[in-house]
Design a binder for these strands. Structure first.
Lengths: 245, 245
DNA sequence: CAGTGGTCTAGACCACTTC
DNA sequence: AAGTGGTCTAGACCACTGC
């Protein structure tokens, strides 16, 4: 506390710099989701370092789920289009433990203007163009999830209900394919709330029934927030699962 | 699917074996939480491998939060007694973003027998001895958390209200100090529920008010479940926070 | 200054995938 | 057989801590 000299970037190891360069290539779409990046030996030559140093950089990016290593094949840019990654961010699971396939129904997709609240989370200005999507997801015929999605209108220009209806698969795969936007990580804030009139109608519940409110902000490369998702889960026969380490 | 030959331990790298040996030492309490383990060079000599191989083993254990590296000082066994780790498993945070200090009040601590449900989660038999603790936690004078804790009676022999009242600090630090039990990881299942009579009384709410139900199973070394904790959070002015990668 | 963890290298070799 | 990621080594040197 007595020493106010800030050691800003006092020392930056080589592999950190290489990590930053790989990250820059990802952010610049030099390598696209699903693509293989150059081999470790090639990268070592390109950056004039040893294989071990490149490995350490890739190791950390793989640990953050930005890259995926496949022995004998290569190192690939992570994508939500792979089967195992389709539900990477979904933490809802049935109490019974059986497998879980949600059917999806988009209700609306409208162009509006950002409220102060949404603008703040997406790092926009209040009044900036926004796309607002409503959807319901069902399991075994019962509606379980009501979700509102907010997207920045500039990045997702032209998105409409027709395009969504034509798509069959996870929304994050849709973003990758149509808007070159890969979601890297997300933050969620969870509360218990009472169902209001709208929610009770969509989820076939009584007004006042307890629901899980999950508000997510999802980020692309460079910590850029590009989606807000406010979900309400009916947790009567399913739960939100979390692991603490 | 056509090939049923199971490649069980078909190949196990050296560092995995060393990881297992370090893990065994931790599990056997050869090194206690807070202690420094031998230096990388010493371990390399002990196991007759190079420093790099020991490093890789330690790296992975540190990534799982079992060990903590401190440059220039050594490598230490993780502990819940360190300031930064006191609330390692607490995901509740105030909406306002201010810092959060919960005051703790233990209500009861009774010896009972395990229900089939609790026994199953703790890998005991129904009817085995169990310790059942109730507590309330408050923030700024308002009761916010009601928690039931279930512990195996054998491991936590002699635990009573008096001992709990005498303790000031996180419960997991108490377990470490008094019962040589360090919590390594936990799994939580979250639901939204309505406050019943008991809950509404403890948390000063109306019956039927929505609450977050968080059921946690906590594990020591060797994936051994040793605590069940069923919490109910009032999420009116606070939320459960989660990061998805 | 000695001891600790942290970085980096060059080279050898292993395991896995593909052709 | 060639190419990829994965393991392991021996040795040099750097950064940080504490005596």
């Amino acid at each position: 506390m007595s020493d106010l000299t800030l050691p800003i970037a006092s020392f930056s190891p080589l592999y950190e710099q290489i990590k930053a360069m790989i990250l820059a290539s990802l952010q610049a779409s030099e390598w696209l989701p699903g693509d293989a990046i150059p081999s470790e030996m090639e990268l070592a030559a390109r950056y004039a370092v040893s294989q071990g140093t490149v490995r350490k950089a890739i190791d950390e990016l793989a640990a953050q789920n930005l890259l995926v290593r496949r022995q004998g094949k290569g190192t690939f840019v992570a994508t939500h289009q792979e089967d195992d990654w389709q539900y990477r961010f979904l933490r809802l699971a049935p109490d019974s433990g059986e497998k879980f396939h949600l059917t999806n129904q988009f209700l609306s997709c409208e162009k509006t203007k950002a409220s102060a609240y949404v603008a703040n989370l997406l790092k926009l200005k209040a009044g900036d163009p926004i796309i607002h999507i409503d959807r319901v997801q069902s399991f075994a015929g019962k509606p379980i999830v009501f979700e509102e999605i907010f997207l920045p209108g500039v990045r997702f220009k032209g998105l409409d209900l027709e395009a969504l209806h034509a798509w069959h698969g996870p929304v994050y795969a849709f973003y990758e394919g149509h808007y070159a936007t890969h979601m890297v990580r997300a933050e969620e804030k969870i509360k218990a709330v009472a169902a209001d009139e709208v929610l009770s109608k969509h989820l076939h519940l009584k007004e006042g029934a307890p629901l899980l409110s999950v508000e997510r902000v999802a980020f692309t490369y460079g910590n850029k927030p590009v989606e807000i998702r406010h979900a309400r889960y009916d947790t009567l026969e399913q739960h939100y699962e979390n692991k603490l380490n």
